[in-house]
């Protein structure tokens, strides 16, 4: 569009007419695309009685070039979405997603990345959980069943990303879609309540709203999905690759 506006036009009335057509074109395009986007969302939505299957594998791609140092919109959105409120005790307050500032030991290059549950294909937290409260859905989302979590914290010992939090005190302001409980362990659910409705996780939406678009959510099993195309187009890495966990959260450009 910028390129069009830069084209030379000899007519004096051209600028106004050009602006009109440009805006009209954008409007028409939005009108045409919006239902389509919505349709894509609805196509991803799952009926309540429909079982989760391995046909999907939900994942997240994080573009470290686009992720802004000092921005924590994804963290705030996650906290708001799940009713996570601190008690002024950072060592025991829950964090489902956090910004980690990194500095290359060799070159001094600095960057900032969000770290959350990596939704591993072979999750150590699920392996070690004595009661099976930590589990992985067929679509790759790793969750904690709050009804059978006994609060032993062995999953926290096993998590390679320190992505889990223990609820150390009474909770207030809980959301109905994100049940939590004192004395149990929790972590990022990839906004499973939204994903099941065909929506994007709150952190992804917030990053998009801020105009950074550093987070892309999608289906790693769908060859036509934007996420899959992006992961194929550029080199991605998983955190702690030596553990060979095949994480659903990937990072690019670092």
């Amino acid at each position: 569009m910028t390129r069009l506006m830069n084209c030379p036009d000899p007519s004096p009335a051209a600028p106004a007419r050009r602006t009109f057509f440009t805006q009209a074109g954008v409007g028409v395009a939005l009108l045409a695309l919006a239902p389509g986007v919505r349709l894509v969302d609805l196509a991803r939505a799952r009926a309540e009685d429909e079982p989760v299957t391995s046909a999907n594998r939900w994942g997240l791609l994080i573009d470290t070039d686009k992720c802004q140092s000092g921005c924590d919109e994804c963290v705030s959105a996650c906290n708001e979405e799940h009713g996570i409120v601190g008690h002024g005790r950072p060592e025991t307050d829950a964090q489902w997603i956090r910004k980690v500032d990194l500095k290359d030991d060799q070159t001094g290059h600095e960057l900032s990345i969000p770290v959350l549950c990596q939704h591993c294909e072979e999750p150590p937290c699920v392996d070690v959980c004595p009661t099976g409260a930590s589990f992985r859905r067929d679509d790759g989302i790793v969750l904690v069943d709050k009804h059978i979590c006994i609060g032993c914290r062995y999953c926290m010992m096993a998590c390679p990303f320190q992505a889990r939090s223990f609820i150390h005190e009474e909770l207030t302001g809980q959301r109905t879609h994100a049940p939590r409980g004192k004395g149990t362990v929790e972590s990022c659910t990839l906004c499973v309540h939204r994903v099941d409705k065909g929506e994007q996780p709150a952190c992804v939406e917030a990053c998009h709203r801020e105009g950074h678009d550093a987070l892309v959510f999608g289906d790693l099993n769908d060859a036509e999905d934007q996420l899959t195309k992006l992961t194929r187009a550029s080199a991605t890495r998983e955190l702690r690759p030596e553990l060979k966990l095949n994480t659903s959260v990937r990072y690019t450009r670092f």
Partner: peptide, 22 residues
């Protein structure tokens, strides 16, 4: 020390046999 010691019965009735803890 468990977060939910009241759920001891859960630990006795739900087993994940991949877990060395179980």
């Amino acid at each position: 020390d468990l977060g939910r010691p009241d759920r001891l019965i859960v630990a006795m009735t739900h087993y994940n046999f991949r877990s060395i803890f179980a």
